[in-house]
């Protein structure tokens, strides 16, 4: 076992410090050290997207980011998407559209979708399908996921219009 490294970061708006081995991935740190188990391991080589988190404004597969790379970053995980006000509209639309079956890929899809709608508030179906191609779902055939994300975009835009 190599010497552990001290890392200072921010996760879901809270300042966090942890110790990790240099070889530990961010996903291992989140799940095994910090017990934030919402991000899932499906492949451990960046192909399925079940471990998707936001690092700054980038979406990353946390299984191929090292824990030590979190130093000084702002990390957002599925656990930080709902607030004390309630569910995020994307989460609400996933429920309304039955956009999940087993649910193992759902955290990754919701985090990816949030990043999409922050960068492109009015995506076409093609945009949504292209953006989410890094997240594998084996249950739904993606149809209801795409519908949920499109509908969430609409809901978020209505929210913005109402606040204007």
């Amino acid at each position: 076992m190599s010497k552990k490294t001290h890392v200072q970061t921010e996760i879901n708006g809270e300042g966090i410090e942890f110790l990790c081995e240099p070889r530990q991935s961010l996903l291992e740190v989140l799940r095994d050290e910090l017990h934030l188990t919402g991000a899932k391991e499906g492949c451990n080589n960046g192909n399925c997207g079940a471990c998707t988190v936001l690092m700054g404004d980038r979406i990353v597969n946390s299984c191929i980011v090292l824990g030590v790379e979190a130093e000084g970053e702002k990390i957002e995980t599925i656990e930080g998407i709902a607030t004390s006000e309630g569910l995020h509209p994307i989460q609400q639309k996933f429920l309304e559209h039955a956009a999940l079956q087993c649910g193992i890929c759902t955290p990754g899809f919701i985090v990816s979708s949030k990043a999409l709608l922050e960068q492109n508030p009015t995506p076409s179906e093609e945009d949504v399908r292209f953006w989410l191609a890094g997240n594998l779902c084996r249950c739904t055939g993606y149809h209801k996921i795409v519908e949920a994300v499109m509908d969430a975009a609409k809901a978020l835009n209505t929210e913005v219009a109402d606040n204007a």
């Binding site: 799940r31 017990h35 188990t37 919402g38 569910l87 429920l95 649910g103 759902t106």
Partner: peptide, 20 residues
């Protein structure tokens, strides 16, 4: 809305590998 839905969209649902 399915009964286990909120747990599954918030990351709270406990799968086998989440045991510690």
């Amino acid at each position: 809305i399915r009964h286990d839905g909120i747990d599954k969209v918030t990351g709270r649902a406990a799968y086998g590998a989440d045991i510690h």
